[in-house]
Design a protein around this nucleic acid. Sequence first.
DNA 1: TATGAATGAGTGTTCATTCAT
DNA 2: TATGAATGAACACTCATTCAT
Lengths: 201, 201, 201, 201
Amino acid sequence: MKRSQSIDPRKTPTQARSEYTYDVILQASLELLARGGLEGFTTNAVAKRAGVSVGSLYQYFPNKDAILATLVREMRASMRDDFQRAVTNTPGLTFEASVVALIDASLRHHLDDPDLTALLEKVEDELPLDAETQALKAEMSGLVSALLRDHGIPDAERTAFDLIALSHGITHAATQAGQDDFDDLSKRVQRAVFGYLGVQA
Amino acid sequence: MKRSQSIDPRKTPTQARSEYTYDVILQASLELLARGGLEGFTTNAVAKRAGVSVGSLYQYFPNKDAILATLVREMRASMRDDFQRAVTNTPGLTFEASVVALIDASLRHHLDDPDLTALLEKVEDELPLDAETQALKAEMSGLVSALLRDHGIPDAERTAFDLIALSHGITHAATQAGQDDFDDLSKRVQRAVFGYLGVQA
Amino acid sequence: MKRSQSIDPRKTPTQARSEYTYDVILQASLELLARGGLEGFTTNAVAKRAGVSVGSLYQYFPNKDAILATLVREMRASMRDDFQRAVTNTPGLTFEASVVALIDASLRHHLDDPDLTALLEKVEDELPLDAETQALKAEMSGLVSALLRDHGIPDAERTAFDLIALSHGITHAATQAGQDDFDDLSKRVQRAVFGYLGVQA
Amino acid sequence: MKRSQSIDPRKTPTQARSEYTYDVILQASLELLARGGLEGFTTNAVAKRAGVSVGSLYQYFPNKDAILATLVREMRASMRDDFQRAVTNTPGLTFEASVVALIDASLRHHLDDPDLTALLEKVEDELPLDAETQALKAEMSGLVSALLRDHGIPDAERTAFDLIALSHGITHAATQAGQDDFDDLSKRVQRAVFGYLGVQA
DNA sequence: TATGAATGAGTGTTCATTCAT
DNA sequence: TATGAATGAACACTCATTCAT
């Protein structure tokens, strides 16, 4: 998981050691979450796994939820980046190809570590979203609605909302059910998306 | 959330007083959940709100999760009943009308108390599903896939899976965002469903 | 386990039904104790196993400990009876033979159900001894010291005390260690007893 | 008494403060046990008496039983040490003198605080013995049987078992009865032990 | 700045006992 | 007299957070 530049932790880590500690805590958190879910995710456990004291942990994060919020933010940031790339880096693409690129970018994220992704999404809607994460989600929506608007699709905002929601619905249900065939899933989501748009994929 | 042994209700209440207590506990649980979410959902809090002792609570439920499981089961049972009615009680309906009836049944459930429904759905996939709830969900899927099969739609099972998933995706996202216009939502879900099916609604 | 006549329960059971209920509760208690020790020995469990309501249980026993006290008392009563028989019913016996008869009577008790006996003895010295049980124990000591006195052994009281104590020590340790060879144990206890007395067995 | 997983102390206290807390908890436990027996022996009560928080208690002991196990272990360790000294530190002793030294060592332990010792012994056979305590007890038996073997006594192991058992029987009964005359008790135990061995003390 | 010992409110659950029916 | 639903004090244990060193 990549680290995006600024993500308002308690302090801006400037020194080498600080940044290292900060990263190490997030890494440990991710691992703990991946293994045991929220069950064993305690600040003491995180600190131990990170090889750091609880005190240090609280030096970088004001409380437990801040760690989770950071993880969520990073997930969204990396997703936003991928969406960005899917839309921007391929100037000559048709509308359909762009949409597929977005779908596949999203799918790749979910299939990479389905349980962890599902967990972070669950955490995301239990936590009060911080401004930056909200902005990231807005950017993603914006990317989609801009694409729709650019191709003359009416009510782009609302349509983007629904397309994201239904894609997410299928992806979530499928991964939870253990389905992990990328191509199959991509086809199904495409069918849903283009069906909603009234377009033959 | 500690997962314990059983999750089924401890005793089937037969006497009047028992039944009352049982109901009163579930009612109090629902109210507590509606107000404060899982946050304040404590066995002691439930008992207090129900005007009953903790001991009584444990007479009817083996543990805290069993209360939640019961609530989920009841939600699914009532949903299943509504689905049943939507499909069965209207023999002369066209395929499209039947589908709309199902969509609306589902929507009515979600719009009735969006937060509570969302909460129970979240709880549902944190808890190990008891056999009966699983059966109820299977029945609902079965109702949908049977309808699809009856109208010659191929791969009915998988299609039902995706339709349920995408409908849920839209409904969940919309209600979370505070959207509560029944007709508007119904239209959008119809568009998604019929689009997936390649049918003009 | 035999029931001795009068054992001051809460009420003297005179009616057939009462006596039956009383017995059934004690029997259930014994079984529960035999299986799970004090662990699962709850008044509700006893009542259930006895096929009786908790309310009824409290009709015959003022509290949980009274049940245990009764069980202990019955154990002591039956032991006293056996001791009595060992000494009284065999008039022509030599001193040595009488001692062996007592030892064997005690051993038979412990080997019959070692765990249960050990459990009741443990319970016995956790509970305040009721007058009757105290009397029973005194009778048993009395039987032994009388025998000693009758054969000219000095300081009969104290000697009886020690002989009972050391016999019990060996028997308890042996049965706890799983040793259950009656003849072997009898030999060892005899060696200890006659050794203490300075007599060749 | 609920039996849990481990029973070994959670962390070996190395820092000064830790060691102090650890000791203070054990000391408070001992005092509480001495006064009220197992009755009031609550983790919260221990913590309170120790002037420490419950949380701290659980930092050093994984559960309540572990405290008891530690107390038992320490009792056995100190007893083993005394036995060791009784046998080892007095090279020129006759067999009889050595036996008496062992008896007296044991007696001193029991007479020092009879109720507490009895309590810990009771606890000892309710708890699953941890490896170290088992080893300590084995060492003590070994010390006795080695002494017997060294002096040509046959079946040393079994004999040691019985001697320990009968000594314990007398000591336990006597102290429970409130007898606390060291010399008197020593005489009586000697009489039992040497009697069993067929030796004139 | 880092450490990790200490805190203590809070949580789920049990079980002896009571009492309305 | 019998029933069993109801009671609620009590208990073991957790974990986010603080703060002295």
